[in-house]
Amino acid sequence: MQRIYEPENLLEAEVLIGMLGSEGIEAYLAGRDLMGGIGELPVHGLLGLAVSDEQAEYARQLIAAYNAAQPLPGDEPDHLPGILIC
């Protein structure tokens, strides 16, 4: 298993796990149970997505494409140009 990405929060982690799962990649979220300790633990680096060694490179490519996604023209509000609103 390789730790391939540190999501910013639990919501992003769940979205990425679902996306990877739809591509046949089983992902494990390390640190999920530590989220209740925020305030006692450092905020950054608690969460980490891990996948099998064989699927790590493909999973990194998928996450890079996810992070590079741009809104379709006309989908973003005028007061938030360039922001993808889901």
Rank of each mutant, 00 (worst) to 15 (best):
A56I: 05
A64V: 00
R60W: 01
Y58I: 14
L29P: 03
L62H: 04
R3A: 05
V51R: 04
L46T: 12
A13V: 00
Q2N: 11
E14L: 03
V51G: 06
D78G: 01
S52P: 00
P81R: 06
I85C: 09
A13H: 03
E76Y: 11
E8H: 15
M1S: 05
A13P: 03
A65Q: 15
L72A: 10
L41W: 15
L10F: 08
E12D: 06
E26Y: 11
P81L: 07
I38H: 00
L84A: 04
I83Q: 06
D33M: 06
M19W: 00
G24Y: 08
E40W: 15
L47C: 01
G24P: 10
Y58E: 15
G37I: 07
L46Q: 08
P73F: 04
I85G: 00
V15E: 05
A64N: 07
A69Y: 14
N67E: 15
H44K: 15
A30Y: 05
I4V: 08
L10G: 08
I63E: 11
A27P: 01
A69R: 15
V15P: 04
E54H: 07
A59N: 05
E8A: 15
L49S: 04
Q55D: 09
A65C: 07
V51P: 06
L72E: 10
D53F: 11
D33Y: 05
L46C: 07
V51M: 06
L16D: 03
G74A: 03
Q70G: 03
L49H: 01
E6R: 13
I38N: 06
V43G: 13
L62D: 01
L16S: 04
G82M: 13
G74E: 00
V51E: 03
L29Y: 00
A64Q: 12
A59G: 04
G82E: 14
Y58C: 01
V15H: 05
L84Q: 12
I17K: 13
I83T: 02
E57L: 02
I85W: 10
V43A: 11
N9M: 05
E12I: 13
L16F: 01
G39E: 09
A69K: 09
A65I: 02
P81T: 09
P42S: 12
G18Q: 12
Y66A: 04
E8W: 11
E26N: 09
G39S: 09
P42W: 14
M1Y: 07
C86V: 07
Y66T: 12
I17Y: 08
I85E: 01
Q61T: 13
A50T: 01
E12T: 14
L49E: 05
A30V: 01
G21T: 00
M1H: 02
G82A: 12
P42F: 11
E40Q: 10
I85Y: 12
Q61I: 14
L11S: 12
E26I: 08
Y5Q: 06
I83C: 08
L47N: 08
A59S: 01
H44N: 15
L84C: 03
E76A: 15
A69N: 09
A68M: 13
P71F: 13
A64S: 13
I38P: 02
L10D: 06
A30K: 09
A59Y: 03
A50P: 02
M1F: 13
P7Y: 09
C86D: 15
A27Y: 02
E54R: 12
E8D: 13
L41C: 08
P73L: 03
G48D: 02
L11R: 14
